[in-house]
Nucleic acid binder design. Structure first.
Length: 495
RNA sequence: GGCCCCAUCGUCUAGCGGUCUAGGACGCUGGCCUCUCACGCCGGAAACAUGGGUUCGAGUCCCAUUGGGGUCACCA
């Protein structure tokens, strides 16, 4: 059995959104499922649209997701593109180069072969001529497309020209898509398409087919927008006498608005997800669920990376387009956060605390960490939940203190008694604090809830915090007491 | 417009002719737990786009309609 080889072949024209990375995930999962190889190829054949930094973005995000590239651009190739950076991986591989702009001679060679065998021809029609032709066709309500004027003109190789593929008309094409099954065209609805541009660069059609063949790609996973041009690709393989790979056209992922994912769609950019505190493994898991399910009646939707690899199959792919639901992603991220080892959680939280300008002594954060771990969905939610531990003045939501029958006098009473009771408490532990504070509430004939709102705001400033006794214990007796005393002066009618 | 793809709860999906009075998950919602918020647990509302076939029997097969989407570049 031949080795399964898949590839992710983005063009570096900007950042990739999650739809693009999902394609990469599936290709990677398929390869790994079969113990095969996953390659990265850069399709930089459009010189106008290539944007600096795009390749770095792709490689770094793939790395963040923990996707190992088995074959791809070497460090030298990256450097030649001006895309070198500290820590850039040096991947390489036996089928390089993996950057299309470095493979120009090969495309030219194949184009010449196609011309020699009569499957392609040179064309020197100017853009102006083509434009006029198109206008005339539209005026006649014909579908626009190249007429084939140069098909038989034997344009000289010396003249400035492009190379077109001679698309046979009146040809039916049938192929089996790994996801959709049989797709059939009665007649090929396409005109002679360009293979080589006048600047010597190939178009996608030529470059991708040549590379997929040369790189021994066995399964091509790509967006469904390519389905319409699949006949060109099949015909090209036929003309070249090559065995085509298995094609799988993936359904698209739309934003919650039902429209295509774009820069505007929130949470569509992986780097943004990272900054918001999503875990790569959660994102990978969630995104894999858009358009794929294990099937076999299985209800499983939380998968480790290895489970995903073990269970992934193109048979489980759905034909219909899906929607990226940021709310469900958040839920899943919360799930993954809760599953983290405490030490891992603390480690991952660190950069987010720093970003929020909150530097806490390690032991202090470690002590409160278990209690915040089970109540955040994103790492960015940690800082606001623990910032009451910082050595800085507290801003208290005093208004929220006086609700449901709580008035200034009662609040003062709660504070005074708590201060008195805590002052003499030797064992400032969760259990000790628990006993004392409940005692205070009982003495005052108050329920725990209302009484604790006062204490919570007094010590943390907020109405929503980690559990009260735990927060007190972590903060420490002295700071708790001073905050309680401070609050006494803030209650209306004091003095 | 031609061609192609798609169609189960709001969303992601299970379902591959009978076991579907359609299952799960997110979200929503009622309750329990409870010091707030979460977590957890129990319950609820919520879908087979429409019309024809085929069949003893259709969410499942076929066709049409409708509705989405894609594509028809010297962009990928």
């Amino acid at each position: 059995m031949t080795e399964v080889r898949t590839r992710f072949a983005p063009s570096p024209t900007g950042f990739q959104h999650m739809g693009g990375f999902r394609t990469a995930f599936f290709a990677w999962l398929l390869a790994k499922h079969h113990g095969g190889k996953f390659l990265l190829r850069i399709e930089d054949t459009d010189r106008e649209r290539t944007v600096p930094g795009a390749i770095r973005f792709i490689i770094e995000e793939l790395g963040w997701f923990g996707i190992q590239i088995d074959e791809g651009p070497s460090r030298a190739e990256l450097r030649a593109l001006g895309e070198d950076w500290d820590g850039a991986p040096d991947v390489g591989g036996p089928c390089g180069p993996y950057v299309q702009s470095h493979r120009l001679p090969r495309y030219k060679e194949v184009a010449e072969q196609l011309i020699a065998t009569g499957f392609a021809y040179r064309c020197d029609c100017t853009p102006e001529m083509l434009e006029r032709e198109r206008l005339e066709q539209m005026a006649r309500k014909e579908s626009p497309g190249y007429s084939g004027y140069c098909r038989t003109r034997n344009v000289s190789a010396d003249a400035k020209h492009i190379v077109r593929f001679k698309i046979p008309q009146r040809r039916s094409v049938t192929f089996h898509d790994a996801i959709r099954g049989r797709v059939h065209w009665e007649t090929v609805p396409l005109r002679d398409t360009v293979l080589l541009k006048s600047d010597g660069f190939p178009t996608y059609h030529l470059a991708a087919m040549v590379d997929d063949h040369d790189m021994k790609i066995t399964h091509v996973l790509r967006g469904i927008e390519w389905l319409s041009s699949a006949p060109i690709h099949l015909l090209l393989y036929e003309a070249l006498g090559w065995e085509p790979p298995v094609f799988a056209h993936l359904p698209v992922v739309n934003g919650p608005d039902g429209k295509k994912l774009s820069k505007r769609t929130g949470a569509a950019k992986s780097s943004e997800l990272r900054e918001k505190g999503f875990l790569p493994e959660a994102v990978l898991n969630y995104v894999s669920l858009i358009g794929w399910a294990p099937g076999q009646g299985s209800d499983q939707e939380v998968f480790t990376r290895d489970e995903l690899i073990a269970q992934f199959s193109l048979n489980g792919m759905n034909e219909a387009s899906g929607v990226f639901d940021p709310v469900k992603l958040e839920w899943m991220n919360g799930l993954y956060i809760r599953k983290l080892e405490l030490s891992d959680f603390i480690k991952r939280a660190e950069p987010f605390l720093k970003a929020a300008n909150l530097e806490l002594p390690a032991e202090l954060f470690a002590a409160i960490a278990p209690h915040v771990q089970e109540r955040v969905k994103m790492l960015t939610e940690i800082a606001p939940m623990v910032d009451f531990l910082a050595e800085r003045p507290l801003e208290r939501q005093m208004d929220a203190m006086f609700q449901k029958g709580m008035d200034a006098a009662k609040a003062r009473e709660v504070l005074t008694r708590s201060i008195a009771a805590l002052e003499v408490l030797e064992d400032f532990s969760v259990a000790g604090i628990d006993q004392v504070l409940r005692g205070v509430a009982t003495e005052l004939g108050l329920k725990a809830g209302p009484a604790f709102v006062v204490l919570r705001i007094a010590v943390t400033g907020k109405t929503v915090t980690p559990p009260l006794f735990e927060s007190f214990a972590v903060l420490g007796k002295d700071r708790v007491l001073s905050r309680l005393r401070e609050t006494l002066n803030l209650i209306p009618g004091s003095n």
